[in-house]
Amino acid sequence: MKTVQIAVFASGEGTNFRRLVESERADELGCGHIALLVSDKPHSGAVSYAREMGIATFAHTHKELLGKEQWELAILEEMQKRTIDLIVLAGYMRIIGTKVIEAYTKRMINLHPSLLPAFKGLDAIGQALAAQVKETGVTIHYVDADLDAGPIIAQQRVPLEPSDTYEQVARRIQRVEHELLPRVVKQWCEKETR
C-alpha cells in the first residue's frame, strides 16, 4: 500500500502536530506518514519537537527568505522534493498564498477552533465567548483562497457554559482537536490510497 506523505504546518507549541506524530507511532494514521514540519517560527515548540523526533523541518521566517512569495516558492520546492501528498494546517497562524493553494487543491486541510462558518479568522474562542453562544466546536476543512471558507470535511460540537473561562474552553476544544484531527487524516489517507 502507498504511504501518504504529510507535511504539517504549525506556528506555536504544536500540540496537534505532536498528536499526529504520536498517532502515527501508535499505528493510528493508517498509511499516513509525517514527513515534514513547516513553521514560520524557527524557535517554536513545534520545531523543537520535530527535531527531537527526527522529523525533517522547514523553519524560516518570511523575512529570512526575502518575503512571502520567495518563502512559498521555497516551501513548494521542499514539498516536491519530499513528494508531499497532503498538507495539514494545525495551528499555523499565517494566511497561505495562492501558489501553495493551487498546487495542493483538495490536498490541504485546516483545523479551526469553531463551528464554521461561525467565528472565522483569529481568536475564534474569544469571538465565541464574546457572542455568548451556547456552543462552539472544531472544524476541519479544505483550504481555498477564502479565509476559513473551504468545503467542510468534519465538525464536532463543544458546549459552552456561561461561567466558562477562555482557558476552560481552549482545553475542551484542544481535547476534541486531538481526537478529530488524526481520525480525519487517517480517513483522507485511506481514501487517497484506494
Rank of each mutant, 00 (worst) to 15 (best):
L20A: 07
Y166H: 15
K106I: 00
A7W: 00
W188S: 00
T57N: 08
T83Y: 04
R107Y: 01
Q127M: 09
V185F: 04
T61P: 13
A46P: 01
S11L: 11
D123W: 10
V176I: 12
A130W: 02
A145M: 12
K186I: 02
A35M: 03
P42I: 06
G121R: 11
R19K: 13
V158N: 07
I109V: 12
I152V: 14
T105E: 15
K68G: 07
D144N: 15
E69N: 13
E192V: 04
R51G: 09
E102P: 01
Q70V: 03
P151K: 13
P117S: 11
C31D: 06
V21N: 04
Q70D: 15
K134Q: 13
L116H: 11
H178N: 12
K63T: 14
Q132M: 09
L36Q: 06
V8A: 04
E179D: 13
T105A: 11
A56K: 13
W71C: 06
L20P: 01
V184W: 05
T57C: 15
A103N: 13
T139K: 01
A74N: 14
E28I: 01
Q132W: 00
W71V: 04
V47T: 09
P182R: 04
F17P: 02
K106C: 02
R183V: 02
L89G: 07
T83M: 09
V88T: 04
V143Y: 00
I153C: 00
E69Y: 10
A35Q: 12
M53Q: 15
L29E: 01
A154I: 07
A149Q: 12
L86H: 05
K41M: 10
L66R: 13
K81I: 11
A90L: 06
E167R: 10
E102D: 15
K2G: 04
P42G: 08
L180N: 03
L111F: 05
I34P: 00
H43S: 14
E77N: 14
I87Q: 03
L20V: 07
R19F: 00
P159F: 00
N16H: 08
A103G: 08
E13K: 08
E77Y: 08
